[in-house]
Design a protein around this nucleic acid. Sequence first.
DNA 1: ACCTGAACACCGTTCAAGT
DNA 2: ACCTGAACACCGTTCAAGT
Lengths: 219, 219
Amino acid sequence: MAASRARTPRNTLSPELIVRTALELMESDGTSAFSLRGLAAELGVGPMALYTYFRNKDDLYDAVRNHLMGLLPPVPDGVPWQDQVRAVCRSLRSLMLQHPCLAQLLAGRPLSGQETARVAEGLLGVLRSAGFGKETAARTHTTLFTYVLGSTSWEIQMAAERRDPEAWRRLRTTMESLSATEFPTVVELAPELARTTGGDAQFDYGLDLLITGLEPQAN
Amino acid sequence: MAASRARTPRNTLSPELIVRTALELMESDGTSAFSLRGLAAELGVGPMALYTYFRNKDDLYDAVRNHLMGLLPPVPDGVPWQDQVRAVCRSLRSLMLQHPCLAQLLAGRPLSGQETARVAEGLLGVLRSAGFGKETAARTHTTLFTYVLGSTSWEIQMAAERRDPEAWRRLRTTMESLSATEFPTVVELAPELARTTGGDAQFDYGLDLLITGLEPQAN
DNA sequence: ACCTGAACACCGTTCAAGT
DNA sequence: ACCTGAACACCGTTCAAGT
């Protein structure tokens, strides 16, 4: 909002500045409220100035996602493969929690860019070193990646819901209106369900289930 | 497209007709191309006619999701709990594959409606009968649900990518440009990775890992 | 190359009005 | 109640033009 009046002088724009500002905007106003026109206003330029650096909105989205994926830490060395897998999955999850727009950018856009390959490389390397076969390593990578994506996206979604009073009221209303004869188990487990929509313990529970299932596959 | 010229007479609209037409439109033209104005045109009415039945676009989205969730088959009886869990998860997955918009409707909208509770009831009932504790049953439900959501959304995304020539070309270019020294494992496992982005075998692999991990929890 | 300004073809939604 | 029509405040993107 700060610079939306002042005209930014020429040659001060750059891909990095645009990506950084886009990210800030997505985080302050929400991913769905993001627009190229709003970004241009924030940067103090006309909407068309952005087209010098990005071919279209999706191209910018890819750049933001690539930037975020570059922030992932390297895989830790010298620990059992189970802990390496845990570390990679937790890193991705906490990056998504820090930057909620990443959930939409990963799920809603086709794959591209070197940075996405870096996650795959880290995880696949761990699995291969642990003795997983080629096909099993690839399958395991997809399984772990989609588990992290799905569970963390859901967690972000539920957290957003809790902040939106209207959505939260509707959810409470639905839960309370559930007939105890038609939905006995949901009604009985309502408190437990409310407690297990997210958080580290919930994430680790599912992750440990997967890792336990994986152990026979290693040699 | 058929009725976009003719004026539909009064009192022929209904929530059911609107939801059904919306679903058809999302499946023929893609979820992202869907608009209230396009839906109204298809129904042969003005855009504002829809607001008699739905408070806004999100309200219509919820109705479409609720309609789809109502199509889920009941949990099979008289088989081991592992097979019941498998059946519930596979049902949800195949419903998502049949109606790709469901992925976006589940991930992008807050929870609401009785139909979403039906899935939870089915799965939680199975787990409780198998001897899972309250908290463990709730945790397991969230884990299984987010696994199905994440893996199937990813599969749908990858399938869409394969149909889009531009996206597909970019992905191939990225994969081929990966340096074999920086990304040795990704390059080595490229064929396996391409084969394991989706399909029944990939889905069941992850599901079986989870179920294997769950077995000690049952009594 | 870098950026502007006007214009096009869209959106969801509000408001006042008609039946 | 059911629906229309005009209007508002937006979009992403193209095109021609300026520096």
